[in-house]
């Protein structure tokens, strides 16, 4: 409670990062994450998400701009940044030689937790994530998904004020994904600011309070999932599953933002064009170009495609 009452928000102001070679990875990024908030950072590969994260945790230095958590300047004090931020990287944790519970507990102690509390919290997380059967298993024997969950527990066993999770659910089975998101919610409920870095838009839509879409180092949209989707009100998602090997068919003018991922052609159309859209898709099927189609409400994925020109990870899985 106290943590929420104090101003411990994370703030990035005008953060610009130009690498020595001249590549501009972040361009005047400004965002904030409040304690108790789950904030999504979405964008395709190379958009600048990882660069921002590495600047927050003190691995990179901004060319200009400021990063702060509450009163602490993270750029001037990278050692303080490491205490205030917990980080789950996208890569797997280096825990081949560790037992699962040991890796979690040891990380908690490194992060400053007292042994008894860390042990209790480790037990809680292992139970909550339903990974008890592997608690004494060496990391080298764990599947990718279980290793990911252990990594999540390592990052959150003694969380900082800002918890940065980079693709936390990679390789995790659907049931335990849900358990993981419950723990994320619990962290935020207790006052952590959570930054979720992902290009899995569908998952982010269900999990975040607010999000930013980053493209070429700048924020191209920011808001709640509902607010972002509101811009697409009156639109429908038309997804056409093309026959394998066919070239992408020419889309009529009223079909917007067509993006092909594999054999899926994802587009949006006006609600008033629903009948024409169906006719078009049926025509493609009749010509052997497509095998089936789906018409439904637009999702955050469609907003994302419109903004970035990319489909997200798992983004064309037909959940529309």
């Amino acid at each position: 409670m106290t943590a929420i009452a104090t101003d411990w928000a994370f703030r990035a102001s005008e953060v610009t990062k130009v690498y020595p070679g001249g590549a501009r990875a972040n361009d005047a990024l400004t965002l904030h994450v409040e304690p108790g908030e789950v904030y999504g950072l979405l964008g395709p590969n190379g958009a600048g998400k990882s660069t921002l994260v590495k600047q927050i945790i003190g691995l990179l230095k901004p060319t200009s701009g400021s990063l702060a958590i509450g009163p602490h300047d993270l750029v001037a004090q990278p050692d303080v940044a490491r205490q205030l931020c917990s980080y789950l990287p996208q890569a797997q944790m280096p825990i081949d030689s560790f037992k699962a519970a040991e890796a979690i507990e040891l990380t908690g102690r490194i992060r400053g937790g007292d042994p008894a509390t860390v042990r209790a919290r480790t037990d809680t997380l292992i139970e909550a994530l339903d990974i008890g059967e592997w608690r004494d298993e060496m990391g080298v024997k764990l599947s990718g998904g279980v290793k990911r969950l252990v990594g999540f527990a390592m990052a959150t066993v003694w969380p900082g004020r800002l918890v940065i999770l980079d693709e936390p659910t990679n390789d995790v089975d659907p049931l335990r994904r849900r358990l993981l998101w419950e723990q994320v919610r619990r962290l935020s409920a207790e006052g952590c600011a959570v930054m979720l870095v992902t290009h899995n838009v569908l998952e982010a839509e269900k999990s975040v309070d607010r999000l930013a879409v980053i493209m070429d180092g700048t924020i191209v949209a920011e808001g709640t999932p509902s607010a972002l989707k509101a811009q697409d009100r009156g639109q429908l998602r038309l997804q056409v599953m093309l026959s394998p090997g066919v070239t992408t068919p020419e889309a009529p003018d009223w079909v917007r933002h067509p993006v092909r991922v594999g054999n899926n052609l994802v587009t949006t159309i006006d609600e008033s064009a629903a009948a024409a859209g169906i006719d078009w898709a049926v025509g493609l099927m009749g010509a052997g170009v497509a095998e089936e189609y789906a018409l439904g409400a637009t999702t955050l994925e469609d907003v994302y495609i419109r903004l970035t020109g990319h489909a997200s990870a798992n983004g064309t899985g037909g959940e529309a």
Binding site: K54, I57, G58, L59, D79, R82, Q83, C85, Y87, L88, P89, Q90, A91, Q92, M93, P94, T107, I110, R111, G112
Partner: peptide, 14 residues
């Protein structure tokens, strides 16, 4: 090479 360096590097240890 395996990108696990960042995690270790980001731990709060002098």
């Amino acid at each position: 090479v395996t990108h696990s360096f960042d995690f270790i590097h980001a731990l709060p240890v002098p």
